[in-house]
Design a protein around this nucleic acid. Structure first.
Lengths: 196, 196
DNA sequence: ACCTGAACACCGTTCAAGT
DNA sequence: ACCTGAACACCGTTCAAGT
């Protein structure tokens, strides 16, 4: 298949996904129908089904394409040798999630969907794996100050990345369910519980 | 209305809710239809609609009735004067959630639903308020060892309860998305991130 | 008052027919 | 190859009719 066609296909998929995302952000997963996406995109039902095999695959595409916050700056800091502690990495991740990535409400809805959609679950796990890799890179210089060998440092960075992602996940649900909350205040209060 | 009728109605609602819960635990919220609940309960469509005004109200009833883990033992420990630290209260809460209450998967699905269903959201917030009150009671003796006045102790206990509930929420999503994880290991690794 | 189950409006998906 | 939109199976909900 010629290159232009591939590029065209991808552009079309993206166009549909962006139309879907606008409706999803406004009305949520349950209350966004294919008819809504048809209306929002200006295409026909069949056009959408010629680019995605069903609603679940479209949702998965949206999740993969737009869910991950851009943590490039965070990762660059780590690779540049800056000493970023896990706590500081968590703080920066929560800050960047507030500015980029999907709304916490939609993320929680996608998690709910993932509970009954193995493919979506797999897609979200891949996304989180990428995030963990970025976080591990970010805290690696810090890990070297705490570990004797390079192997031990890598293991420590990976474990820290896993927990940072878990705590970030907790923050997202908390904000989605109870409304906005200051990042620093949240971290401080979680710390005081765990240190008690 | 005579007492027996009220009791009968409530028993019927409970019967329907339990049938619904069995299907929900098996197939999830999205894939449990009214027809499934009709089949599971042995009643008719109309019978269900004569006890719940719609599927959302039934879901809300299930959430209110079965979502909250029984934290009585935890609360009793606090009221009995036992010194339970916030960290220990979190540990006990996570342990009891693993044994009682709904599956993490279903809880996450309900949170997702709550994002587009204000009434369900309100019901879940009420449930969490009760949980927080229990947690605050549990850590009150501890709070008194850390605060100068009774008022300061109450405020400290309330703040701790809020954060314990938030961290528990984080644990639930984490387990739902990535599978079972040891409570103590989770707490230890979250602690090491926040202390770094 | 509670219950039945056929009927209705709407949803996701398919597919013969067009370009 | 991509697209159209009417048709189909299924879903949540209603309601005339039964007890």
């Amino acid at each position: 298949m010629p290159r232009v066609t591939d590029a065209y296909r991808e552009a079309r998929r993206d166009e549909i996904a962006r139309a879907a995302l606008r409706r999803l952000e406004r009305n949520g997963v349950r209350d966004t129908s294919i008819a809504d996406i048809v209306e929002e995109s200006g295409l026909s039902t069949g056009a959408i089904y010629s680019h995605f095999s069903n609603k679940a695959e479209l949702a998965r595409y949206v999740a993969e394409r737009f869910l991950l916050p851009r943590v490039d700056a965070l990762e660059a800091a780590g690779r540049g040798g800056e000493l970023v502690s896990p706590r500081e990495a968590l703080r920066r991740l929560l800050m960047v999630m507030g500015k980029e990535g999907l709304s916490p409400s939609l993320v929680v809805q996608f998690w709910g969907e993932a509970m009954v959609d193995p493919d979506l679950r797999a897609a979200m796990n891949r996304t989180v794996s990428q995030l963990r890799a970025s976080l591990a890179a970010a805290v690696t210089p810090w890990a070297h100050t705490r570990a004797a060998s390079a192997d031990a440092a890598a293991a420590l960075a990976a474990a820290a990345a896993r927990s940072i992602a878990a705590l970030a996940q907790g923050y997202i649900v908390h904000v989605a369910v109870f409304g906005p909350r200051e990042v620093d205040e949240y971290i401080a209060s979680a710390t005081s519980v765990l240190e008690s």
